[in-house]
Design a protein around this nucleic acid. Sequence first.
DNA 1: ATGCCAGGTAACACCTGA
Length: 259
Amino acid sequence: MLVIVSWNVNSIRTREDHVLKLINDIKPDILMIQEIKCMDIEFPDFYSNAGYNAFICGEKGKYGVATLIKKEFDVEEVTINNQILKKEARLIMTKIKDLNLNLINVYTPNGNPIENSEKFNFKIEWMNQLKQLSCKFVKDYQKCVIGGDFNVIENNNDASNFENWRNDALGHHLVRTKFRELLSIGYLNTIRLFEKPGSKYSFWDYQRASWERNEGILIDHFLISPNLTKNIFKFGIEEKYRGLKQPSDHVPVWIGLNN
DNA sequence: ATGCCAGGTAACACCTGA
């Protein structure tokens, strides 16, 4: 069995201890981390001793993703040539050769404010390009897991008060349509197999005591290609990490796959 | 409509996030 985690940590240098705790708690085979907020060379090396190799795509102070994979796997990082996906450090693609498993770690642009057409349009175009990148795995019957912070509220019930998000780039109908396009080419939003919409959130704002009042949203997702549907047996959300001292505003989400 | 928090950078204010 394989455990794959996704977590927007909001600065890896600030959250290093929390990530180590997660590694000890659930011992993932793969960790997809978003919003590392540092350059590759600044990424702290807590992972080697824990038994992981790191594939990092960072930049100074903003965005940034990293995928940590257990050392026993033979992994190749796949170069992204797409200009839009390369523009900011928001996506890293790796392939575990032993398992023929493709992994796409995504940090979709926020897209706010929607009145600023440049930011919103970049989000829409970025999601278009993600679809282009992802559909070839489905067409070629390849195994693919897309995990990360999608910055999309898929279902009205995935927000404690969806009306707050309807005119926001996370709940906007065009963004939700783009997300559904990923599903329509064959990807499955794995949480839907296990939880009813509204029962689980992955993000609580630092402001307005959102955590204490459980005003959350679900925006961290795992999508899997059709030929992995038979392998998935669990979707987990580690809510307790939002209650730690100096937490990320997101919590870890994970899937369990059987071979 | 904006700030509320939080982190980073740069510099004691502003950007980005969601």
